[in-house]
Design a protein around this nucleic acid. Sequence first.
DNA 1: GTCTATACAGTGATAGAC
DNA 2: GTCTATCACTGTATAGAC
Lengths: 212, 212
Amino acid sequence: MSAMAALSEEGGTREKIMDAAEDLFIEKGYSATSLRAIATAAGVNLAATNYHFGSKFGLLTAVFHRRIKPIDDERLAALDRLEDEEADPTVRQIMTAFLSPILRADNDPVLLDKLPRLAGRIMGEPETLTKPLLEGEFTEVAGRYQAALARALPQLALADLRWRFHFMIGGMIQLMRLPTPLGQPPSDDSLRQGMHALIDFAVAGFAQEARP
Amino acid sequence: MSAMAALSEEGGTREKIMDAAEDLFIEKGYSATSLRAIATAAGVNLAATNYHFGSKFGLLTAVFHRRIKPIDDERLAALDRLEDEEADPTVRQIMTAFLSPILRADNDPVLLDKLPRLAGRIMGEPETLTKPLLEGEFTEVAGRYQAALARALPQLALADLRWRFHFMIGGMIQLMRLPTPLGQPPSDDSLRQGMHALIDFAVAGFAQEARP
DNA sequence: GTCTATACAGTGATAGAC
DNA sequence: GTCTATCACTGTATAGAC
């Protein structure tokens, strides 16, 4: 029943709310978007937002989850394939498996446009919002990729590996928030270029030589 | 007159508001902190916040500026010294000059504790808040450091330099937001360790070899 | 100039009728 | 499931006291 609603062209109230909320979150950010504006844009009653999602934060969670779930699934699947095909995956292969699903986004150009902007917006929200949001979804992915990196860099101390992973995530968030770096003219292909630059940057950072 | 107020022990209304606001912003974040809570904690009237700072955002700007200004001044001074002493500063020297002022914070342990947490909080706020906040203060510092890096890496294309600077900034923000990486036990010395790890990571990322 | 009391429009949330 | 009505709270503005 709910599957049918999700498949129908015009969608049920729940889907209309999520679509309107996503666009407004991307455009104005979370806190600057009121539930009244969402309800108006979706053509539903204000109380329907709280009926379906419990709270404004619940709505944000649902909107974010809808977009990030396929990415993290693809990340896990890509790592499975990689560890199946290669006896010793390289750092570059692991980083590519982790970062490139953002570019693919199921080959859907709408998703490719919306996901990074939504994720960038959300990851820029205060920690009180982002932490509970990410903890449920991201812990498994982060754990499996850190383990794969540890196998590819056996001489690296675990503490150092965690720091470098931390910084790589920071670069990814920065890229999604601002797909064009300071001083660079905006471009349609900016995200793709940046993602490849980030892979190179992170690979060098992970595999760095000992400090002189 | 205003200088005397700033020097006095108990401070004027303006200083009391800024002190209370800083602590609450660090603890709860910007949007979760109401002007009423700030006024109550500072022991002043609600309207005094708007009289002195014009708006909640104006108050945030003043609080942030008070902490970030000495850091950026020190960054510029350190780069001046470096370019004075060394004919060809290395990437590591430049990165150290850029990142270590955060650790020094005028040798004031209170500042060392508050600045990264405040900056981390603020940089995590939505772009609509952070962009105007940073544009005024950070552009000069970023420009001078990118120029210094360009001289140290003459073979590197400007576009690639900008990307790598972008990712280094992302790592710095991530470090200030979460001074302890995922899975690591918290520690008093976490920020200092992370800063050194970030310098190593960024140096390797900037000076990376061509892609195989 | 500095500060206070007060009012206003807009917010997220909720109870209860239909 | 959906709607109306309402609540407590927010940032902001202003008139007036000192």
